[in-house]
Nucleic acid binder design. Structure first.
Lengths: 101, 101, 101, 101
DNA sequence: TCCTAACATTGCCGTC
DNA sequence: GACGGCAATGTTAGGA
């Protein structure tokens, strides 16, 4: 890859997006940045793995003769239902407040 | 939480969320509410129509051989203040250097 | 605005995202690109204007003593209901097909 | 359309969407269906949890003074193939020149 | 290949 | 005025 480390940046420069009083990019802020990025990337990989697992289950289901589209739809509905319950409660709450109750 | 109970309600007192001196829900306040809702819904439809038009233009552009993603990027850049563009690019650069990219 | 035309680019280069047999970026492809972008920007402005109008209506409603959050919720529900009817029909269809009917 | 009617069904014949030789809905096919759905739902919850974790990390990063938007950008770049990054940047450049930006 | 539905991101609104 | 949550938008991946 074409990018090289470049440690000659000014230190001590304040910016709203460079943590103050940290060695600007060569020091611990850089470490922290790296940590943030790597942790996120790690979690995203796990997410991706889970997506793969889900896909596998659907493949298996398809092989077993199920209609995947239908199953997806069922799952979608089951997902929505609790949301709707939530919503109804929220709405009730809002109306109550709107009425000063 | 957003709204606090209005503990100061006496019988017949106005709520902060129901227009004063209007017949609460059966009268002109209800009409006004209806009007608000319908006007908003009308405008939202127009918005939706415009979104469709935009989509069409991008389709056309794609057919003409352009890379739609890049065009979107350009539009985004043009929308931002030049100063902001500069800021973002600078910061990206700094972070990249911090990571040795 | 700050940008000026720049007609000194090579012509004749083929790319999947540069329309073939057009003077690459200095000629009519550039014109077309510009046209696409400007039309989209125009439509986006209209969209933005509509968003402003909606905002105004809500402001007015708020001034009139209505609870904007509640109104939004109502509109959301009214929007969802037709979608749900659609969905139910789709689902019925899917089940029928799944059963080979 | 996705599925065509199976016009070749005789009484008692198996549908392509119901596992063969299983008691149609009351038996082990139903169990298997239930299993599929529950496993998928379980994995989706895990996915959601991971999304929450990622969000937390970004919050932390923000508190530490980083610009979250830029960090996202970095992660996006790292995720792409270097060749693609190059391609996109090149194209952006070309379009910009075409527009005189 | 096109289109729909999930997902991630961005911007907004309300709160502290 | 900043922060956090929420809603809307844009993007991406999967299915038809």
């Amino acid at each position: 890859m074409a990018y090289e480390a470049d440690d000659d940046l000014d230190a001590g420069m304040d910016s709203p997006h460079l943590p103050k009083s940290d060695p600007a990019v060569g020091g611990i802020a850089a470490d922290r940045l790296r940590s943030v990025i790597e942790r996120v990337e790690r979690l995203e990989e796990e997410r991706k793995a889970l997506a793969g697992d889900i896909k596998d289950i659907f493949s298996e289901a398809k092989s077993a003769g199920f209609d995947v589209k239908v199953i997806r739809q069922i799952i979608r509905i089951r997902r929505q239902e609790p949301a709707e319950v939530e919503e109804q409660e929220t709405l009730l709450d809002i109306y109550r407040r709107a009425l000063g109750m």
